[in-house]
């Protein structure tokens, strides 16, 4: 990887920005599994595996699964954030592999939020 100059950094930033919010058209949905030490201790790895299994078993190519860090509400982990097309991000809490299956079918495939597992929608406030 070539070392960046100031210009390179700026250009790289512009190019990557859209990817953050799946606006560049590659994916129709993105699942962020929150995995810090607290999440992992609560079982986030199983949740991640469950999503990866669903994608593999169904042969999906347009749903991204990524990991990130703890979202703050440690008492309700394992947690995920689902980004679906033009909808605001939705946070699901206290997950199990069974709940994952339902969320995958209803929200990720069909765009319907699973109310009973969801905590809230939207993003946190940055100062």
């Amino acid at each position: 990887m070539p070392k960046l100059t100031v210009e390179d950094l700026k250009n790289l930033r512009e190019g990557l920005r859209d990817k953050m919010n799946i606006r560049s058209g590659e994916a129709k949905a993105k699942v962020i599994v929150h995995m810090s030490t607290c999440g992992i201790a609560a079982g986030a790895r199983d949740i991640l595996k469950a999503f990866m299994d669903e994608i593999e078993n169904r042969g999906i190519t347009d749903i991204l699964v990524t990991t990130s860090s703890c979202a703050g509400l440690c008492s309700k982990e394992p947690m995920i954030t689902v980004l679906y097309q033009n909808q605001p991000p939705v946070k699901y809490v206290e997950l199990t592999p069974q709940k994952v299956k339902k969320i995958f079918e209803e929200h990720l495939l069909n765009g319907n939020i699973v109310k009973e597992f969801a905590l809230a929608s939207g993003s946190e406030t940055t100062a």
Binding site: I32, P88, L119, S121, E124
Partner: peptide
């Protein structure tokens, strides 16, 4: 959206992220 907004949940509403602005968003 049929579920509450994050900004209406007190746990999140009263927080103001500076240091943690990227939490849950970027892959570290």
């Amino acid at each position: 959206t049929p579920i509450p907004a994050l900004k209406d949940i007190p746990f999140f509403a009263k927080q103001q992220l500076v240091v943690l602005r990227n939490r849950g968003l970027v892959d570290p």
